[in-house]
Amino acid sequence: MARRYDSRTTIFSPEGRLYQVEYAMEAISHAGTVIGILSKDGIVLAAERQATSNLLEQSIGSEKIYEMNDNVVAGVAGLTADANILINQSRIIAQRYLQKYDSPIPVEQLVRRLCDMKQGYTQFGGLRPFGVSFLCAGWDSAFGFQLYQSDPAGNYSSWKAACIGENFSNAQSILKQEYKDDDSEGSSSTAGTQMTMDDALKLTCLVLSKTIDTAKLTSEKLEFATITLKNNKPHIHIYTSDEIDQVLTKYDSVIKPSNND
């Protein structure tokens, strides 16, 4: 009888909890780490590919970072198969908006629509919730650069720097310490930050080196993406493995110290 409240997603336990949803979140905290950092002129996303066997063929496309629309890019932590469904839906939602209004979907609207879908699976019976969290980095004309985190329950929140997946609490405390916040109100167009893209990339490397349990950071285990503005239009760049190596070499000094201890 101990498992009475485990088997269905839609039933509250006597303590008022939804176990299946909590298990889904637990699944995510074992998934590859995804980090997102907001800067003055863009957002950096980085993701860890977990457990690659040397027999496994390197996949050509990216596995953890996906373009949702021209103005939104997302990093995924959790079950890749579940994520594919949501990514596909979000692309359809974004294209429908474009067809209807002839303008790119505002970032929060896309995230909200996605979370509505996730929420549905925690309430309507016989289904398992999506075991996926997203970090969505995007730009729209009304609010500029935005970084959103979402969980399997369908909650979403906006962050200056966020981390999901394995070791996320460690990463978050490093981010909290190292993130250069802007104290003076309204001094910058994007949510008061002093970070530049370089700072953000550097901090990403630092956090990755301290959260990923590996001897050496390599492009085989990492994915990087940025969203910036080019000619006043959002520009998403998903890094090739060569470019990732370049970033890792550039910020070698931040990465090294952690390897020694």
Binding site: Q99, K100, Y101, D102, S103, P106, E108, Q109, A142
Partner: peptide, 17 residues
């Protein structure tokens, strides 16, 4: 719903649609 107004171009495209 979105606590944000549609721009004139978005409005016109919506009407056309």
């Amino acid at each position: 719903r979105n606590s944000q107004d549609l721009s004139p171009s978005e409005t016109a495209n919506f009407i056309r649609n």
